[in-house]
Amino acid sequence: MAVVFQRPHALTDAPFHYCPGCTHGIVHRLVAEVIDELGIEGKTVGVASVGCSVMSYDYFNCDMVQAPHGRAPAVATGLKRARPENVVFTYQGDGDLAAIGTAETVHAATRGENITVIFINNAIYGMTGGQMAPTSLPGQVTQTTPYGRDVKTAGYPIRVCEMLSTLDGVALAQRVTVDCVKNVNIAKKAIRKAFENQIAGRGYSIVEVVSTCPTNWGLTPKEALEWLRNNMLPYYPLGVYKDVAPEGGAK
């Protein structure tokens, strides 16, 4: 019988702990498929960051290091500088990357640190139970913005790809989502390119995945995707914000 669908080798058989409708699972799978396709599992080291995805070290089959909150880019820098022949990626959420680890993110990017960054932006803190994230939308109700995010007191959300695209060290800054088959395919191409850039030595590549958190948004999985399309995508437009090798990427 022909196998038409199977678990990528780069994923372990540990069952995901993610909530129903959470897009972490899809993104994990895309990363794993890319690792398989590029044949790099044996020399890939992933950095798990604090947040819902911290236990991704149990899901990816490559070597994994768990970093302190926000420090994944620094840990990845150490891993990559120690063994430049390896492929190093971080998998970070919005709190990790754009709040507590903003300095590490900006400086790894501006150094052109030759790493791949997968950035999950779901506009909320998932693991701690639904508090405001740096990317929570104006007016968005969270546990710590019970009357909606008031930009006068809580400030504005950060658009990470736009910000990082101003830095010379960045090779790729692309925002994608995984709400439908078409967008999943685009996301996979972007992730693949972010890994290929590293193999080609092009510098810091970040793929921001606009994601859902049905549990903490208080929506069903289907409603969550609707909410993402209607609220997040207008604020966080999909697209390529920087690409130093528009032709030289995926074949």
Binding site: V47, A67, A74, V75, T77, G78, R81, A82, E104
Partner: peptide, 26 residues
């Protein structure tokens, strides 16, 4: 070897963590 002036002491020690995790003397 690698000399890297980090953006902070926090980043520097975590770079050490990464390099140590990779198995080198850092």
């Amino acid at each position: 070897g690698t000399y890297l002036q980090a953006e902070s002491e926090v980043a520097a020690v975590n770079m050490v963590l990464g390099a140590a995790a990779a198995g080198v003397r850092a």
